[in-house]
Design a protein around this nucleic acid. Sequence first.
DNA 1: ACATTAAGTGATT
DNA 2: AATCACTTAATGT
Length: 210
Amino acid sequence: MYEKLEQHYGYLFEPELLDAINKVGVPRSVKQGEKIMDIGQTITAMPLLFEGAIKILREDDDGDELLLYFLEKGDTCAMTFTCCLGSGTSEIRAIAETDIEMMMIPVACMDKWMQEYRSWRKFVLDSYHERMHELLETVDSIAFMRMDERLMRYLKDKAMVTHDDVIQTTHLEVAQDMHTSRVVISRLLKRLEKEGKIELNRNSIKVLAL
DNA sequence: ACATTAAGTGATT
DNA sequence: AATCACTTAATGT
């Protein structure tokens, strides 16, 4: 496990910190589609991602979902930071977009290391900043972009995090992530295909314009 | 062969 | 852009 830690975070953290992480961190692997965290659940640990991607969702009153952003290797979840200061319960849902390998760090350590390690402090602050930025981009896309632009952004994003230009999904799933109806997505996808930006097949979408 | 699920389409708001 | 109603296509049993 230490090798993975060093491989993915060695350039960020000093050896002592890597040791400390290795000591308290609990390795965890999650299969694709599994729920990692749900709304209202108490947060006890923060994830350090080694492999795979996680999608972060918000839920409305009717139980409909909305994709906020993806987490990738080297990322960590900003929600865990806020929980340390506030309620301790999650405001978001996290689902494994692909198979995941990560390490869970107890929130207590996370707090302690903030004072002890400059590199950790920088890592946490940078991550927070990055998440905030991504969140704003998502807000922008919802508020200012047309649906077709938004859809294209979604597809590119998804292709990016899975490292595959062929996205395995259904129109319905896309619609739910974007909080719209399947019919709308089907129509837009059809149009994007005619424009030569994507290729459609049952249960898969190939993104050409990367 | 039949049921189920995914995707395409016209019409209406 | 959302919803309804309906069709067609693909896939599982």
